[in-house]
Design a binder for these strands. Structure first.
Lengths: 165, 165
DNA sequence: TGCAAGTATATTGTGCGCAATATAGTTAAT
DNA sequence: ATTAACTATATTGCGCACAATATACTTGCA
């Protein structure tokens, strides 16, 4: 395992192991490319299932949060989903137009939007309850593998967040 | 570990293990959300590094491919990156405007674009050679962990692709 | 040869993601 | 009470992703 590049880090992100500068730029060795491609593919597989609920994947994530807890702010929602208002504001407006979500104002603090579900939004949860099962069937794989994947993604996410100072 | 939902699949995608329909819709249990968030965070961490090369992350991926092999078609590029012409055509035009890439035509088949690098595009590889190292330092973590993450993403990608019939 | 079927790329439209910026409302310190 | 600093949301602009569609070119078959 030759290393032709001085390397003050013992570890690697975009290479499978310590390799030459050239091998490090090889697509095959890029961890991040695998992550990126898997995430894209995942959204693609969700799409036909979510089409039936008239939701996109990011909209589905918002609904997951609101099915758990209503009356939260855009900020709180963004903290949970790691998304900002530039993404969420237009997305929430689309959910409002579809009649799934209401965007009220806090009486205590006029700046904050209070997000809630309409009855249609609440009702959607019943249809959505099939989705995890359908995804399971579509993709298969051992539960332990998926748990491991989730654990590694969560760990990577933690480090990536930390590296944004 | 009670299962309140009949389940013909032994495995799970969006839940950590066999759980109730309600727990399956819990954001905390969603493997795909972890994948999605980690991929977003990864692109965010790349951004300041790639800004210096005047590249976005998807543009960087295209350059990685072209640094390995020039003269390929949009189709071949798309097969390698799992992206279609709707994504690549405008992206390649932007790389052309920046002066990194040329978009010629095949003489054998007038339909196919033949992608090549300009001298500026080739020169960029030298600057890019630092990026894997810089990402490694930014994120840290054991090489074996990253290898494992890559392996699991590749496996997931394979299954996700297969599930699109 | 002519034409149907297939293929490669391009176009259009929608919805993210996110940086940068703007605006309005709140809080705290003087 | 003012005002400066802070906070929550919104807006704008750019670049993906991708479905759906269009166009141009090629190939194979009758």
């Amino acid at each position: 395992m030759a290393t032709t590049q001085p390397n003050t880090c013992v570890n690697s992100v975009d290479i499978a192991k310590n390799v030459s500068a050239d091998d490090a730029l090889c697509l095959e060795n890029q961890v991040c490319f695998s992550l990126y491609s898997a995430a894209n593919a995942m959204v693609r597989v969700y799409r036909p299932l979510l089409d039936k609920l008239d939701l996109t994947y990011p909209q589905y994530l918002v609904m997951l949060v609101l099915w758990e807890e209503q009356g939260i702010s855009v900020k709180t929602l963004g903290d949970k989903l790691f998304l900002d208002s530039g993404t969420l504001t237009p997305l929430l407006k689309r959910l409002e137009v579809k009649g799934f979500v209401t965007r009220g104002r806090s009486e205590q603090d006029e700046r904050v939007r209070v997000l809630a579900l309409t009855s249609a939004g609440i009702a959607l949860k019943t249809q959505a309850s099939e989705i995890p099962h359908l995804m399971r069937c579509k993709v298969g794989g051992e539960a332990s593998e998926l748990q491991a994947l989730k654990a590694m993604c969560d760990q990577a996410l933690k480090k990536l967040h930390a590296s944004i100072d």
